[in-house]
Design a protein around this nucleic acid. Structure first.
Length: 442
RNA sequence: CGGGGCAUGGCGCAGUCUGGUAGCGCACCUGGUUUGGGACCAGGGGGUCGCAAGUUCGAAUCUUGCUGCCCCGACCA
């Protein structure tokens, strides 16, 4: 993409409404614009990041055996009345009346709808287990939206729902999602730590929050230092194998959020040198809640003995849009964003330091063409901005690699490659630059 | 929902106390000089001062009502 033809409205100064780093940087880097409180438009670069995050989340869900569906954003109130949550949810639920005066709502979550959908699609215990997920926009009318995309009212969320015949089987489904989350967050370049969680309004007795560590996180967390560097299962993992050793390993060390924290236990179980007290952001939450929804909504099947039994369920959420902000919170410096390779909107930022100069224009066009041909996604700054402005902007938007070409270097057949994360620069020939970047991404 | 604050050109702000018909920096356009970390000079375009009513000869400024947004708290992916 040539920057001169793109839509990337960056801002030099800090917008006054943005308090936390990710919000500031997302506005400044031209990723999002606020449409109204807690509701945002995703500009091209933000949208690219969002799609990349979504794709990784999807990929790991499918790998773990979940099946994708897409449920609507607008739901009828009927099912919610049946489950009893129409009243429970309170003002957070955005209620809408259609032209026939029917009560509708903009879905804050989908347990009711998926349960009803699933009920109509299965006949017997032989249709179990299943795990259905979708990635859809949701709306919760937060009292006070804040932190930009991190606590918006409208947000993109992946939620999965497991259906099993027995609680024991249900635990297995829960474990699959647990492991799937470990893999998902690792691929997103994050250190996510599962922590035993309160089950909140969704209910149930088994629940973990996945927290990523970031200095600016909204909650305080306490855990054993080892958790930060635990290995995550690779893609050869068989999800149908026994996952309990993995779960056991990850849940053995102490890990708790502020609300669940027990200082005495922490002191007792964790050596002083291993105690980690940090801030974190919740990016995923998994629940096993048994028959809480299947009972009121009559989701039952016949088991092998001919008895009608209520299905055992769990639900598993990932805040996809929140992750865009969370990744920035975990990965930035004073100059701007530092994207992990897997979600960066472009792979390489090519900078023409003197647009209009025939030598640099030709050399840059050549680099651009060769990298594109090699499958590297390049943002080519071909504008006639000054060099300084280009450096600042490129650092701000945080692409992992910068390829810098100016008349001075090109006279010696040299260009520079700069790694955004480390700031290291290397002077190489244009051909070597192409090969090096190709290897980095292909 | 409790407490605090803001609303003036695309962004950041001054002007409001003490009413006299709108200004600064950045951005933008034109020309020139520049050109490796957000340049310089000159010229220029752009604002019903959040909305509504009121007071007044006259309102960005005073009064009343409304709306939007931000920050702290309780609540949440």
């Amino acid at each position: 993409m040539r920057l001169s033809k793109y839509f990337l409205p960056t801002i030099k100064e800090n917008p006054k409404e943005a308090e936390i780093v990710s919000h500031r940087l997302m506005l400044r880097a031209g990723m999002i614009r606020q449409a109204s409180a807690g509701i945002y438009t995703w500009l091209p670069m933000g949208f690219k990041v969002l799609k990349k995050i979504e794709e990784i989340v999807r990929d790991e869900q499918v790998r773990a055996g979940a099946i994708e569906v897409l449920m609507p954003t607008i739901q009828s109130a009927d099912l919610w009345k049946q489950s009893g949550r129409y009243e429970d949810y309170g003002k957070e639920m955005l209620r809408i009346t259609d032209r026939h005066d029917r009560e509708m709502l903009y879905g804050p979550t989908n347990e009711e709808l998926i349960t009803d959908t699933f009920k109509n699609g299965i006949q017997s215990y032989r249709d179990l287990p299943r795990n259905l997920f979708h990635i859809q926009w949701k709306f919760r009318d937060e009292i006070r939206p804040r932190f930009g995309i991190m606590r918006g009212r409208e947000f993109l969320m992946k939620d999965a729902y497991s259906f099993d015949l027995t609680a024991e089987e249900g635990r297995k489904s829960y474990n699959k999602m647990f492991v799937s989350y470990l893999r998902t967050f690792e691929r997103l370049g994050l250190k996510a730590i599962p922590m035993a969680a309160d089950t909140g309004p969704i209910g149930g007795d088994l629940s973990h929050e996945f927290i990523i560590l970031a200095d600016t996180g909204e909650s305080e967390v306490y855990c054993h230092r080892d958790l930060v560097d635990f290995d995550v299962p690779d893609e050869t993992l068989d999800y149908d194998s026994d996952l309990t050793p993995i779960i056991a390993k990850w849940t053995a060390p102490y890990a708790a959020t502020d609300e669940q924290h027990d200082p005495d236990r922490f002191a007792r179980e964790v050596d002083e040198k291993d105690r980690l007290h940090a801030r974190g952001i919740e990016v995923g939450h998994i629940f096993f809640f048994g028959s809480k929804y299947s009972k009121p909504l009559n989701l039952t099947v016949q088991d092998s003995g001919g008895n009608q039994v209520a299905i055992e369920s769990g639900s598993y959420g990932v805040g996809v849009s929140r992750l865009a902000g969370a990744i920035i919170e975990a990965s930035h410096d004073d100059n701007g964003i530092i994207w992990p390779k897997s979600v960066s909107p472009f792979d390489v930022g090519l900078m023409n330091l003197k647009a209009g100069d025939e030598t640099t224009d030709t050399a840059c066009a050549d680099l651009y063409q060769k990298l594109q041909a090699a499958g590297v996604d390049v943002l080519y700054d071909d504008t006639d901005d000054r060099a300084g402005a280009k450096f600042s902007k490129m650092d701000l938007i945080g692409l992992p690699w910068q390829l810098i070409a100016g008349p001075r270097g090109l006279a010696e057949n040299e260009v520079e490659i700069k790694c955004r994360a480390t700031g290291e620069r290397e002077t190489v020939s244009p051909d070597d630059a192409v090969n090096k970047l190709k290897n980095e991404f292909c």
